[in-house]
Design a protein around this nucleic acid. Structure first.
Lengths: 111, 111
DNA sequence: GTCTATATGTAGACTGCCTATAGGTAGGCA
DNA sequence: TGCCTACCTATAGGCAGTCTACATATAGAC
């Protein structure tokens, strides 16, 4: 998977995996891998800054927890984040439709 | 359309509009607009450098022409570019499938 | 004691899309 | 004659998000 291709879609992915339940960063990375059938291997250097950014914007909120002697910062969607996720979903649908349309082989222009 | 979303897909778009016939830069921009129903407004500062990059790689070749007193640099797909376009198409299909899959609401993990 | 898995985080590089700007021709219009 | 718009190519520098590499730490297996 070309890394640049993810640009601008990372927020949507992160918000989406947090839709059902709060997760901590490490678990988010694993969830992305599982849900993508192994195609998405997002490095920690991408995820952690992105999560902080999304929290700063207000789409996520986080709490610290200690589980089995290990500290975790668990992120959950805010109401604002839930709305944003809806927007990201429709934006993705439009994006995929537009790009897919231009890329479709043998396209004829109207006229 | 979020500009960042286009990252890593611009090459595919450019190669795709050049598949049927050679075009010059300005015409490529118009073709992208038409084919996308107006959604794709790619600035010249994006297209011209990208075309040169693709030519440097060997996916495109160009010739100068003068039409109606105006100079045009017309780009066409090379054989290498045609192969690359195939690769870009399958890469897009996989990308769209992966992202779409993760973004799909109410996804359940196996198990 | 070493290794792996778990877990968070930062610094700096990279890259490619963007804005802004530059230069030029052709043709319509006042 | 001057002004405006459409056409046409091109570069410089900014910007932002992803990446690589590194730092730090606990738990448990071996």
């Amino acid at each position: 998977m070309n890394p640049d291709a993810l640009r601008g879609h990372m927020d949507a992915l992160l918000l989406s995996v947090l839709e059902r339940e709060p997760l901590h960063g490490y678990a988010i990375i694993e969830a992305l891998q599982e849900r993508s059938g192994g195609a998405l291997n997002v490095p920690t250097g991408t995820v952690y800054p992105a999560l902080r950014r999304l929290e700063r914007i207000g789409y996520l909120a986080s709490e610290w927890a200690t589980v089995g002697g290990r500290k975790r910062r668990t992120y959950r969607l805010t109401d604002s984040g839930r709305k944003q996720l809806e927007g990201e979903r429709s934006a993705w649908a439009e994006f995929a439709s537009v790009i897919g349309g231009v890329l479709r082989p043998g396209v004829r222009q109207p006229g």
